[in-house]
């Protein structure tokens, strides 16, 4: 389990945990990024930006946000 920033572009990930306050969790949830959902990291390494895609829903993050999203590779 690592922050999203450590994943290679192209890998499939599952969201495990958010390391941020209620407000930003809420924002993520509203955009459909919830614990247990699976995405492909279609773009982004290192300092970002990062794009998570499930084929129809695409969410972009800056590096500051990506480091707070804990994922595991699937």
């Amino acid at each position: 389990m690592v922050p999203l920033t450590f994943m290679e572009s192209g890998s499939l990930v599952e969201i495990v945990r958010f390391q941020c306050g209620g407000r930003c969790c809420r924002r993520l949830r509203e955009l459909g990024v919830v614990i247990g959902s699976r995405y492909k990291l279609t773009a982004g390494t290192g300092r970002g930006p990062f794009i998570l895609s499930d084929g129809s829903n695409r969410i972009g993050f800056g590096a500051g946000m990506a480091i707070k999203i804990i994922v595991r590779e699937v």
């Binding site: 930003c24 924002r27 993520l28 955009l31 930006p49 794009i51 129809s56 829903n57 695409r58 969410i59 972009g60 993050f61 800056g62 500051g64 946000m65 707070k68």
Partner: peptide, 12 residues
Amino acid sequence: KAVSPLIMELPA
């Protein structure tokens, strides 16, 4: 304060 982090939907 630091820049707030970016989260946004990217439409198809």
